[in-house]
Design a binder for these strands. Structure first.
Lengths: 152, 152
DNA sequence: GCTTGACCTAAAGTCAGGTTTAGGATATAT
DNA sequence: ATATATCCTAAACCTGACTTTAGGTCAAGC
């Protein structure tokens, strides 16, 4: 059993954040001894799941919903599985989007490298994809693709 | 030359957002005819760069700083390149982090699939990594690795 | 010449996800 | 027993990135 301060240290999360999560109902049956929170292994795993779901784009209130489902036992396995399946699809799309962003950044790194050696942007600005080094051309084309625009 | 409404359509961004970006100085010399904004090709490319830098984790005020550098010409090539190099490092770390999150999600999908077929979590909760299918074990171990905790 | 739709501004409002503050209770070391 | 560190709550505050509102201008079609 750990105090809030120890858990804060372990996960690198501010104490205030852990208290905020608790207030939002993210630790459904966290124990206390004379008012002081006692975090057990179950709560540590809960924190890992919170971090995961948060990074996957879920809001606090949806994470709370998940924790409520966990309390409801086997009747909600299906709902919980569907939640993770939705987040899986979401994350896979997100990763592809991030790769495009990274390709734009790679192109821009190269662009400014060229501008620095030339002393101006004239040559590099006018350059067609066909004349770029193959790696850069691929990055450029991936980044500038105009397929369906995201409705995010 | 396009009006704000046309640009809004093209990029799927609300008109209010484009005006907000302009107010924040993200279009340093956007032209106007009798008060009405006229977006040219330069501004369209600027929007692409804004989207890219935003998705790479930069704040509006930092994007503005970048636009100011662009106005300053060749004297700031080095600064601009360094910005993109920093964002490249940042995004590469971000992508690794996202892959770990995705592995946690993959594990949880499998976990609930097992729980559903068993009717309870007993077996799957007690299962050691060594007894998991190899793909799931790899995902589980990647997701539960406790190397240096990020100071994000 | 008048209506309609798209444009404009400044300022206030919104929302998520915390953080800070103020005032107190509790536990540990000396 | 007393100092000091850590814990507690409720409520106010903060930040970034927009969005909404209120009130007005402008250009095109009828």
């Amino acid at each position: 059993m750990y105090t809030i301060g120890q858990v804060s240290e372990m996960f690198g999360l501010p104490v205030s954040t852990l208290r905020y999560y608790d207030k939002e109902g993210l630790f459904p049956n966290l124990k206390r001894t004379s008012g002081i929170r006692k975090f057990g292994d179950k709560e540590l795993e809960t924190i890992r799941v919170i971090e995961c779901l948060k990074k996957s784009g879920l809001e606090i209130k949806d994470i709370k919903q998940f924790m409520v489902w966990c309390e409801e036992g086997s009747a909600t396995y299906q709902k919980r599985r569907e939640l993770f399946l939705r987040q899986k699809v979401h994350m896979e799309a997100e990763l592809m989007r991030m790769n495009r962003v990274l390709d734009m950044i790679r192109y821009k790194c190269w662009y400014y490298e060229q501008a620095i050696t030339d002393g101006n942007e004239n040559r590099v600005r006018a350059m067609q994809p066909a004349d770029m080094p193959v790696e850069i051309r691929e990055a450029y084309e991936n980044a500038h693709r105009e397929d369906e625009y995201p409705q995010s």
